[in-house]
Every structure is written in C-alpha cells, then in structure tokens.
Design a protein around this nucleic acid. Sequence first.
DNA 1: CATATTTATGCTCGACTAGAGCATTATACG
DNA 2: CGTATAATGCTCTAGTCGAGCATAAATATG
Lengths: 326, 326
Amino acid sequence: MASSSRRPKTRAQPHVAPTVDLSAVIMAATPDEPRVLTVRATPQQPDGLPSGPLQSEHRTLEMGLRTWVAEQTQLTLGYVEQLYTFGDRDRTEADASGAGHALSIAYLALVREARPAGLAHAAWRNWYSYLPWEDWREGRPKALDVIKPRLKVWARAGGKPLRQLREERIELTFGFEAEGWSDERVLERYELLFEAGLVPEALRDTQPPVPSKVRLAPGLPMALDHRRILATAIGRLRGKIKYRPVIFELMPASFTLLELQKTVEALSGVRLHKQNFRRLVEVQGLVEETGEVTTETGGRPARLVRFRREVLIERPAPGVRLPRLR
Amino acid sequence: MASSSRRPKTRAQPHVAPTVDLSAVIMAATPDEPRVLTVRATPQQPDGLPSGPLQSEHRTLEMGLRTWVAEQTQLTLGYVEQLYTFGDRDRTEADASGAGHALSIAYLALVREARPAGLAHAAWRNWYSYLPWEDWREGRPKALDVIKPRLKVWARAGGKPLRQLREERIELTFGFEAEGWSDERVLERYELLFEAGLVPEALRDTQPPVPSKVRLAPGLPMALDHRRILATAIGRLRGKIKYRPVIFELMPASFTLLELQKTVEALSGVRLHKQNFRRLVEVQGLVEETGEVTTETGGRPARLVRFRREVLIERPAPGVRLPRLR
DNA sequence: CATATTTATGCTCGACTAGAGCATTATACG
DNA sequence: CGTATAATGCTCTAGTCGAGCATAAATATG
C-alpha cells in the first residue's frame, strides 16, 4: 500500500522495518496418525516448523513459501492455504527487546506423501505429541486429568469477577461439565493453557525462570510460537473437512471407506459411527468405485474407492460432518 | 522469527525490507443497509479503506490497527478479527516495479454507530455499491444480466480444456444454472470477475490502457486491492453470522425481531422466512425480552428484545442459520 | 365508527437429516 | 467347517428445516 494523503501524520516517524517470515504447517495423515512436518536445528532445540524470510524475488507470498519448503524439505506442496499472520512485538524472546516486529505469515499445506522426509533435520511427527489433550479417539485423553485441576487453580487465583470469567472460558473451550468437547477449538484451548502458564512457551521469558516442570500440561513444546501456529492449523483443518472435501488431499489415489473414516477420525480426534459415516459419504457422492477390492483389511474384502472430483461442482459445500461429543 | 540454523542458505541474499500496512474493513448495518467505512484522499480518487503502516511502537498488530483507525476516523473499535494478509508483489501499480513487497494485513471490525463519520474524507457506504451482484434481497440482481454473458464470452475465449474449467468455475461461484447462489462465495466471485477482466482494477496496468467501460461489471471500484479485501470481509462475515452471534455487534442495545431479521438479510443479501427466523432465534435463546414494545413499526406493536450474552457459554455454536437459494 | 391494511406472533405439516443399532455377507485362519 | 473380523444393508426415532395457514393488535382510511 503506497498511498499517501489518507494518512497525514506519522509517515516520517521512527519506523524499524519489520521482518517477515513465511512458515508452513505441512500435514499428512495415515488412518492412524495425523502428522506434521517439523524441522530441528540441533537435537537440543525444540521442534519447529519449516520457515524462511520473505524475499523480494518471491512474486507472491505463496510462491515464497513453496520455494522455502522445497529447499528445506524437498517437498512440492499441493494444497496450500493462508492461516494467519502472527506479529505481536513480544511474540518471541528476541523481539521483546523492542527492535522491529517479527511477522510470521503462516500457511497450512496438505500433502499425500508421508515418507520419512529424507532429510536429517526434518521429521514427520504425530500432532498429538504436541497437543495430547486433542485426541479423544481412545476416550477422554489422560492429559486432561492433569490439565483440569490446574486450570481450576488458575481460575481461583483471581478475584470473583475474574474467576467467573475464567471458569466460563474453561467450560467453553474444554467443556468439562455440561458443554461437551468441541473438536475445532484447538487454538482457544492452547491459548487458555498459555495464559494459565501451563505450557513452557508461556514461561520462557518470565522471571524467575521456569518453575518446576510438574506444573505443566503434557505435550512437547515447539520453537517460538510454533505450537500456537500448529493449534491454529489443526483447528482450521478440523473445521474445513466438515464443509470442504479437503480430506482427499491427504488420501492416496484409492482407499477403502474405513481408511477414509479412520483418517477423518485421526484429524478430528473423535470416533465416528461407521454405518452413518458411510451413508454420509455415499449420499454426498464424495467417492466412486474403482472396481477393485482389497483383502488386506482383515475380514470381508473392502471395495476400493476414489474421490469424485465432480462433487466440487455439484454440491456447494461437500464435506464430512461429525457428531457431537458429550 | 529470528531463528537461524534451520535455513542454511539465502540469509544474506538481496532482501528489500517489505512495507507492512494495516487496513480495516469497518462495518456497520441498519436493517436496510450493510455499510463499510471508506476514506478518500481527493474527490477524484476511488474510495479506499482506512489503513496505515505498521510501526514499531505498536505492541501488537491489532493495537496498531486500532491506533490508525482512531486517528483517521475517530472510531474506537470493538469487535476486531484478522482477515487475511495480502502481499503479492504485483498487487498494486507501484509495486510492479520490483521494489519490495507491500504487505497489507487486513482486519474486519464491527461497530454499532453508523453516524456519518464526522470527517470530510470518511464516509459510510453501502456494500452493494461496490459489489452490486451480491444483493439478492429484491430478487436476482440486475448486475448479473450484464455479468453472465460477459463471463460466458470469457469462458469461450480459451481452448476446450480451459473453457470447461472456466465454465465449471463460473457455475460454482455464480450458480447460474442448477447450483444456486451461495452467499459466502463473495471473494471467489470477485476474483473470477477480476480474472475475466470485468473490474477496472484488473485493467489498471494493462497495455493498451483501459478498454471501453462498456465491458465492465457494474459496481464502483476501490483503491488498490481494497475491493478484494472488502469481498473477503463480506464473505467472512456472512459465514460467521451462521455460527457465531456476531450479528449483535452490529445491533443497538434493544431491537425488534424484524429489525434483527432485516439486518441479517442486509448482510447475507438474501430474504428469510419470517416465522422460521423467529423460531430459530427463540429456540437458540439468542435474545431475551426487555419488557418494552415499540409501535414505530407500523402494525401490531413489536416486542423489544436484547441479546442474551449467556448463550456464549451455553451453546457451542450459536448463530443465525440461513436457507439455501435456488 | 367500521373496515382495510400492516406487522407481529402462534402453530402445524411434511420432507429430510442425523444418531443409534440390528442383521447379513464375505473373506481369512485354524 | 466353525470362528473371528470387517464390510455392508437396512430400519427406527428424534430432531431440524422449509413452507404456509391462522390469529392478534396496532394504524390508516372512508
């Protein structure tokens, strides 16, 4: 934006140029595991997301991202969508000094190949190693047994009005009592834990340094604010699979209905009713027969199906709906 | 992002610092008109959105935005949400030169006061003066009579495969044939018109300069890529009112159910079934009685209601659902 | 003042959707 | 051949959604 007269003042004020990074949450999935591609500088450092500075030879932001990812991970991205721009001046240790802003424009990318990312410093990780409370496939995650009492303590720490606000927010995001679990509120949950000081990222710059590890929520930390970005991406993807057939960006060319269901379950973190899931997929016309079957599944052979690209034109909002959890 | 070892190369490459602007789509609404706050440098220039450069004294992006808006429009923003970051190097005339990137981080803000924005250079405008094809409240907008044949011509201009792709995309976004109108695809429609060369913004830098005005779609242009940003904001808001009670950010403290309905219609651009709308609002518990009635509506006096803030805690996804249009 | 007009509001009916579970079929394996 | 494991077909029920009829309570009008 190079215009002028609309802003009479401050044009000439001290203005440290911000640095702009492009970062990518690259996701893949098997029927069992939702994965994210992480990179690590040294074995001691926490995992991070592939990222790199925006450069003037990048024609578009998205192309800059693709360039960086190709260089760092040898991956050619398919589906890419912008997530959010993070840029609070105090978002990292280094920037609290008051230098310029460090912006990070985060993208969500979906890929099919889940091969072990040949490079030594890059690896596919299960989402839930970073956010273990998000996986309800085996029932209520145990991480919540730790989180719940600590959130209660945090809520009680304030005065009455603050306390009630906090309790309502806890109920709204984690649904411990009546509410029930809402699979999409991933970011809200992470931010609540952050504010409550239950993730190490929140304590990095505090004085005195890091209290005992016992007080933290389970789950691996990530570099900078990358765990927040990951939470943003998971929430977005969980929402999106319900009204757009993005799930197929993660599936192989042909698959069984159970594989599709398991993959959806892995992403959304909840279990689904098998027959109803099939009915939904069939009536929506999301898939078509390949004519082949596979016996590798155990019991009765399963038909192999493929995604029907035509639904993109036929239906305004095809996607895989999910049930509520209580 | 100030990390290091994850990106071995290109750290020292030519790297013109990008400029970062914060821009705001500030919306208000009456039961009849959805409005956006625009600013104009000179009477000759097209309308633009309030915006200003990110500065190092801004602690967070959102606070920077609020500061700029307060300065340019005297408004104190309430609800604010980040929309998208625009930043293709060729997004404006000035930047095509290959200087640095001009990023624009766009925000959506909702305000109640729709007073005439005291300042001479700022004004509230009806959304649909910029995007007239988005208003279906009085039936199919006439703008489409112009747009449809021109899009057909554009589709036919390519070879067979390209042509089919274009026709499918037209159908998907505008739903001329079977599909029907989808109120949320505002951005997709604008971008299609842009690609088809039907909006003047698309022709600004072309050689030879601007062909006859007769070839364009109706609707006022805006500065830079601001009409694209507006389209993004409208699409986002139309989606959001369906699952979050953001509509109340635009309503006065108390209102009648018909006023609420009319406002939703103004935003979504479609007409709703009165009795069903009321049923929905009632069963969702979105409002409560104030005890007062108003006779200003014409016929039988209407109850005045107010928003019930409690629903934010009670219901996971309250919002105003809309019907399909065929 | 009676009547038309306008808006608010209550209620019902039918089509469709979603959640749950029973029943049957087709393989592999011992 | 019986059993385990999936895949698949089908039904029942409650709830939601779209549409429209009917009634109530004001104002406008002749």
